[in-house]
Structure formats: structure tokens, C-alpha cells
């Protein structure tokens, strides 16, 4: 056996070189966060090469109405790194359509990482947490990434052929860019006036959320996560970076769950593919 293998080795190396896929470490049973000095902010950072890949199997959210009955994205590749204060996840999945606009009847690709708000032996319900046991969610949306990457906050960016005669807040009598004009425009965009950041310009493509059960999702008091996503040939690679939740530190364990939305298949909100809790092990030391 041994000589045969040895004689095959150059061939194997050649095959690997041709496919340009260096062998990546894997972690089938859990998500292992390696300890690094500095966290990468992007999905192409070489630091990810060392992080073991956990192939997470996704299930349809078929428990709470509205449910997703037909499975779509069946798996997600998750990697993790920690600098001792924050934890970073690199998530890659296939989404042939690259759906990145949200307009009537069209939805965006998205991904989310969920952690118990407090690492403790008693884990919250993996489906959005439960009363008394909240979960924290970092949510990335392809449409928000497009805004961060420079898509203008205009109707023309969504509908290139749209022609609009007139908006009252763009009347000649109102000086363009004046506070009066901005105030009037806000009156015709109630969600923006209330600070609901579901659309519009944004500094980052992610949102920090908190939940204590299905239907309770709400933005966290402080937006602390960052992220960056990139279209890959067949899908997306996204990095999400967030502070370690309460009670979690290097060398300790907690749980993590993931969710993926295929916007092109009408997946939004509760209609999603998701995992249960997956063990999360943070490397200690250093």
C-alpha cells in the first residue's frame, strides 16, 4: 500500500494544483474558532485558509407559519476565527441567482449567524430564542451590501427606465438640500423618518438583532457588528464580525446557528433554511 500511495502522491499534488483548491482543514462536528491576532474583515483574506471548514446542513423552517416547505439551500460552509474579544464567521453558500434587490415581489439573498445572548449551559430554543433566554443575531443582506458597494439610493438604481414627473418635496420653491426640503421628503418616507433601516444608505451591510422567540426579532440597542460579502461564481462568501457574547471567552464553548435566504425563491423572514444549534468551540491561549 505505502509504496503505491507514495507513487501516487505527485499525481495527487498535480490534481490539487490544477483544481487550485488547496486542501482545507475541516471540522465536521463543530464550528471551531481559531485564535488569531487580527481578524480578517473580508472573505478573501488569507487568514481564512487555516480556519477549519464546518459544512452545516440546513433544514427548512417548517415549524412556525409562514413555513418553508421545500428545501432550497441544503448546506453552508462555516469557518470561524476569534481575536479573544470578537468572533468572525466566514460563510459561503451557493445561490445561482445572486438576488440583491428588494422591490415588490422580489427579495434579497441573505445570511445570519445566531448566538445565545449569554453563553450558559442552558441554551435558548434554537428557533429565535425564547422568553428569558434571548439570542443575538447578525444579519447580512445582499441588497445592503450592494448599497455599501456604491448602489445609489435612487429609484433609478432599482428601475432604470422609471420616469417620475414630480415629487412635492422637489418643488422649485424648496431649496435643494435645505433642511425644509429634507423634512418634507422625510414626511413621505415614514419608515425612514422613524429610523427603520430596512432600505437606504448605510455604513455596513449587516444588522444586529435580538430575539426571544419567533416574531420577536428587533434591532439591538447598539449596532456593533461589521461584515462584508462578495459574490462568488456560484453564490456568496460573507464575513460577519461581532463581539463575543456575554460569558463567552477563549477556551470556552457555546452554540451557533445559521440561516440562509434565497431571495430569488421568495425566501424572506420566517421562510428560510436554517440549522439547529451547532457546537461552537473557541480556541484558548495566546
Amino acid at each position: 500500500m505505502a509504496p503505491t500511495l507514495r507513487s501516487l502522491a505527485p499525481l495527487l499534488a498535480l490534481a490539487l494544483a490544477c483544481s487550485q483548491a488547496p486542501q482545507r482543514p475541516v471540522s465536521p462536528a463543530e464550528v471551531r474558532a481559531l485564535r488569531v491576532a487580527a481578524l480578517p474583515e473580508g472573505p478573501d483574506d488569507p487568514a481564512w485558509r487555516a480556519a477549519p471548514v464546518h459544512a452545516a446542513a440546513l433544514l427548512p423552517q417548517d415549524v412556525v407559519e409562514p413555513r418553508l416547505l421545500a428545501p432550497s439551500t441544503v448546506s453552508l460552509e462555516a469557518q470561524s476565527l476569534t481575536d479573544g474579544k470578537r468572533v468572525a464567521f466566514r460563510l459561503a453558500w451557493s445561490s445561482p441567482g445572486h438576488a440583491d434587490t428588494v422591490i415588490p415581489a422580489r427579495f434579497s439573498d441573505a445570511v445570519a449567524v445566531q448566538l445565545p445572548a449569554r453563553a450558559a449551559p442552558e441554551a435558548p430554543n434554537p428557533m429565535m430564542g425564547e422568553a428569558g433566554l434571548p439570542v443575538e443575531i447578525t444579519y447580512w443582506r445582499a441588497a445592503w451590501q450592494a448599497m455599501v458597494d456604491g448602489r445609489p439610493d435612487t429609484l433609478a438604481a432599482l428601475y432604470p427606465n422609471a420616469r417620475v414627473d414630480h415629487y412635492p418635496f422637489e418643488a422649485a420653491s424648496l431649496a435643494a438640500g435645505s433642511p425644509e426640503q429634507a423634512a418634507m421628503a422625510r414626511r413621505f418616507a415614514p419608515a425612514r423618518a422613524l429610523g427603520n433601516p430596512m432600505a437606504g444608505p448605510r455604513p455596513r451591510p449587516v444588522q444586529d438583532l435580538r430575539a426571544t422567540g419567533p416574531g420577536t426579532l428587533s434591532p439591538s440597542e447598539q449596532q456593533v457588528s461589521s461584515g462584508a460579502g462578495k459574490a462568488t461564481p456560484g453564490g456568496w462568501a460573507v464575513v460577519l464580525v461581532r463581539p463575543l457574547p456575554a460569558g463567552l471567552e477563549p477556551g470556552k464553548r457555546s452554540q451557533v446557528a445559521f440561516a440562509v435566504w434565497q431571495g430569488g425563491q421568495g425566501e424572506v423572514g420566517a421562510r428560510k433554511m436554517r440549522t439547529g444549534w451547532i457546537p461552537l468551540a473557541l480556541e484558548g491561549g495566546k
Binding site: 428588494v102 422591490i103 415588490p104 432599482l158 418616507a189 432600505a199
Partner: peptide, 11 residues
């Protein structure tokens, strides 16, 4: 109910 693509909410 109508979805507003510029606010990202339904109105």
C-alpha cells in the same frame, strides 16, 4: 397593502 422599495417596508 403595497411594498415600498425605497423604505423597505409595506405601506
Amino acid at each position: 397593502v403595497f411594498f415600498n422599495p425605497m423604505t423597505g417596508t409595506s405601506e
